[in-house]
Simulated scan of single mutants.
Amino acid sequence: NGQVDAVAALVEARANVSAASATGKTALMYAGHNGHLCVVTFLLESRADVEVSDDIGMTPLMYGARNGALGITGALITAGANLAVEDATGRTALMHATQNGHLAVAQRLAVAATSTKLLGTRTMTVLLRASKEGDSAAVEALVKSHADVHARAANGITALMYACQVGSLPVIRTLLGAGVQVDATEKMGMTALMYAAQAGHAAATRVLCKARAKVGIRDMLARTAAVHAAQNGHVAVLHALVTARAHIDAIDTTGRTALSWAAQMGHTAAIEALLDANADLSVADVTGATAVVYAARFGHAQAEAVLRKWETVDQTVLDLLTKDRSGRQRRKRSQKSGHRPTLKHGSQKSGPRLKRRKRSTC
């Protein structure tokens, strides 16, 4: 209830300042939750545990941040509270502040997180966690506080990659505006564009392409963003990549193309999109298998039918082109040799004969 005198009397009587209730809540958590700054200050002076968490993973700092208590948040930060601790849902104190609209508290936490360069669990910075959650307000606050936008998780994933995974356009635009490396790669060679393509975020793909992300970069298996999109059947992403002039017939380490992967997975719409973009049906992998073979092998009858139909059309066009090319080549050879083509008897009309004028006898 915020009765600091009563709390002081209990502490003087040697009460445990870090004692917890049945749900794991301490006096410091209750004071922070209810906004009692004087009680929080007294408990901190009495060396109450600032790192303790309750049954749902909430810390005193999270309770203060969630309720917008700026003074309490500042006092807990000064006392050394860990800003990067996550509750049972994976949220930090900063996320609790932003998700409840307490921007002043969020800014205070962002400044503290940046100045201490504090790492959270799984060696993830606060900015990385906020980007992964798509928390645009938290990311914006951290960027304004000069957080390291180039920080990486243990596997090399950047904040931009996390944002592309969840397709958060506000976070992506904030990070791009802060000067992140759009073509940075993680340990497996994946880029932010590949993560967006893999997850099917077409709008994010277009934003990255507009920011001049390279569509031809390959991961460790030599797979491009187009291959990742085709594997997962993301037609809108394929359209965006084709518009950005992606090479859709690029082959990976096994000699396979985006069309081959789409055929294996039975993504008929993706197959049609690639064929509309003039994907090469004849490309075979290292085993000699084409896209049609993969569609048949994995039992995708509809995909196989589409591919065979296009094969027929392609063969017809090829025959016509071959016939036309042969005719043109014959005519060129005739012209070079100086001979006219032989015509059938009676097929050439003779020109008008001129009458010979009689010589005058005068």
Rank of each mutant, 00 (worst) to 15 (best):
L128I: 15
K132V: 09
E133T: 06
G134I: 13
S136Y: 13
A137L: 15
A138K: 09
V139R: 09
A141G: 05
H146D: 15
A147I: 13
D148N: 15
A151M: 11
R152L: 10
R152N: 08
A153T: 11
N155F: 09
T158M: 12
L160V: 06
C164P: 02
V166C: 05
S168M: 11
S168R: 01
P170K: 01
V171K: 05
T174N: 05
L175Y: 06
L175C: 08
L176G: 01
G177P: 07
A178C: 07
G179Y: 11
G179W: 06
Q181N: 08
Q181L: 14
Q181G: 10
V182E: 07
A184W: 02
T185A: 13
M188N: 12
M188V: 10
G189I: 10
M190V: 07
M190E: 10
M190G: 05
Y195V: 00
Y195R: 00
A196Y: 11
A196C: 06
A197I: 01
G200H: 04
G200M: 05
A203D: 12
A204W: 09
T205G: 01
T205Y: 07
R206L: 05
K210V: 03
R212C: 08
I217Y: 01
R218T: 13
L221M: 12
L221Y: 12
A225N: 07
V227F: 03
A229M: 13
A230S: 02
H234Y: 08
V235D: 03
V237R: 13
V237A: 07
H239S: 06
A240Q: 11
L241F: 04
V242C: 04
V242R: 04
T243M: 02
T243W: 02
H247Q: 08
D249G: 13
D249T: 10
